[in-house]
Design a protein around this nucleic acid. Structure first.
Lengths: 181, 181
DNA sequence: CCTGTCATGTAAGAAGTTACATGATTCA
DNA sequence: TGAATCATGTAACTTCTTACATGACAGG
């Protein structure tokens, strides 16, 4: 069983998302999941059982507080709120960990109102560089195989990369422009 | 420890990729990993330890055969080849399991030479429908929030979806056209 | 009457990551 | 002298998925 370190605050993506949603206000595990599915669900959606496993852990780590609401016809509700330490932890995740995928960057954008705008801009700029670097890499591969009787299917997947990277860069640049205003 | 069922053949993505690469010819775990990283590495790359864990499992399931090559200055080489059952297993994965993400679809494209072209076309067409459905969903969300003082950052992530889906659809349609010729 | 919503979780196991361990050879 | 390549793996741990378990109430 994982114990979240109190000071070091290395959050997993799922923990960060849970805290990010809790930053909006008090929620039960049930509501939290609904909310996640309706917002960042296409990017990140943990299994129900995992959310229920994570929430008590957040409490143990001092990142969230729990309050029980008695109910008669249903199981008691466990309502969770963010503590100041919890807020610091999400912020630190948003600002200081580099996203491991583009989807994770999207999560950071989604929860960006929790951090100074400059922090988001920095994340976006770094991501932009990464996409451009990948594009360069793909172009180098393309140059390498052009002429040779390369695999047709391999080329198709490569082409997706060659189209996806500019699409991402464009999106990032527009976001940067709008956010800088 | 997982045991791969012999007949049911439910492969994980990592197993499928390993078998897909082995279909190109005999390889050691070491070479396999290099090959994966140099080809589908941006889409899928298992940890070294995981590959080494999977390979004996494939042998146990009768999907691969192992041959040991003695070496003096280095650890002995374990060379793996695909068995007919292994080939059937990858094919079945390519044809009959629905991809859980777009990246997984890309893997199926990459290894598509192992199956009849019609199988790939079917996968691509299904994926096209899915991207269009997601696009419709995103547009509905957009209509819903337009006018309202929605979250700025939420809108940014939504917009990425609104741009990504057409990019994917375009790629799919071009691939379909080229492969139908 | 049956499906869906509300509301919580447990149990079992698979899948995956990170770090550790070894050790010769080659090339800059 | 130090890093990279070749070549295998184990150990410890975390994460995640799937299935199970319960049970009232509302709406078509």
């Amino acid at each position: 069983m994982r114990t979240i370190p109190a000071q070091t605050t290395t959050l997993t993506t799922t923990e960060a998302v849970a805290l990010g949603v809790l930053a909006e206000g008090e929620r039960s595990g049930y509501d939290l999941l609904k909310r996640v599915e309706a917002s960042v669900g296409h990017i990140w959606s943990p299994a129900k059982s995992q959310l229920y496993a994570i929430l008590p852990r957040l409490v143990d780590a001092g990142l969230a507080r729990r309050r029980t609401v008695r109910q008669e016809t249903r199981p008691d509700k466990q309502l969770y709120t963010l503590t100041p330490a919890g807020k610091r932890a999400v912020r630190s995740w948003l600002e200081h960990t580099e996203p491991r995928s583009f989807d994770e960057l999207m999560l950071k954008v989604f929860f960006a109102k929790l951090v100074p705008r400059a922090a988001l801009l920095a994340q976006l700029e770094r991501a932009r560089e990464e996409q451009l670097a990948a594009l360069e890499e793909y172009r180098a591969i393309e140059r390498n195989i052009s002429g040779k009787p390369a695999s047709r299917y391999g080329y198709l997947t490569l082409r997706y990369g060659l189209e996806l990277m500019p699409c991402r860069v464009q999106w990032i640049e527009r976001a940067l422009k709008e956010l800088s205003r």
